[in-house]
């Protein structure tokens, strides 16, 4: 699950990174937002949305995106976004 601050809400971490990058010589950087990544194994992906709504994200201030990967021990984990 990728969880990020909703558009329009001040993200102080993003602002700090956006200021730091030009200081290191990287130019043309804008709109930096810092979110978080939650990785987990589970049997029933149907539960993912409820997990995000109830605990992993705060829908009042965060957007989330679920990415399903097949078991990484097998065919190399093809991503299919949803």
């Amino acid at each position: 699950m990728l969880i990020r601050p909703k558009a329009g809400i001040l993200d102080p971490q993003g602002v700090a990174v956006e200021r730091a990058l030009p200081a290191l010589g990287f130019s043309g950087v804008a709109n930096v937002n810092v979110g978080r990544l939650v990785e987990l194994d589970l049997e029933d992906p149907e539960q993912l949305q409820a997990m995000c709504e109830k605990l992993l994200a705060n829908p009042l201030v965060e957007d989330y995106e679920v990415q399903l990967l097949e078991e990484s021990g097998h065919a190399g984990g093809n991503g299919r976004g949803s």
Binding site: I9, L10, P12, Q13, V15, A16, N58, L60, V61
Partner: peptide, 10 residues
Amino acid sequence: PGALLVNANR
């Protein structure tokens, strides 16, 4: 109502 976010001054 609402939520509490990281301080604007970080």
